[in-house]
Amino acid sequence: MSAEIAEPRSQRLDPKYVRGPKSRGNFEMLAWLFMRLSGVVLVILIFGHLIANLLTGEGVNGLSFGFVAGKWADPVWQFWDLALLWLSMLHGTNGVRTIINDYAEKHATRAWLKGLLYVATIFIIVLGSLVIFTFDPCIVNSPLPQC
């Protein structure tokens, strides 16, 4: 006669209850900490982004290729946008990862959804970084006078 006892779900267990080397290290704690640290930085980066692009000058009507070229002529804005891209994508990806883990109950479904998420994340981060680093103000149809 033996009763089935479910595996405890808590990560912090008395050592005598730990079964096997199943731990993922402290990845989840680091992910939790990253959400808080990146969150604070993102508040500053996004507020600056919205103020510069939508609230000053002509606002949304002032946006154009020339506006982007003007901003990225300044390395501070290049760095600002690069940091915004990386932090927002990693913060958002970790958030969606958590949601997938919560709601997708089948192992295969979880694996597929997270695989799709990570492919999209890598694609967007690589694409965005390349766009910022290889920006050419004299590209096809550029309206800038120096081109």
Partner: peptide
Amino acid sequence: GVVIFLFLLVHVLDTALVRVDAS
């Protein structure tokens, strides 16, 4: 959070057009 993330994906793609054609 989900709404912002979905917009973010679209927003990087539309901005990437600056590397293709200004008009």
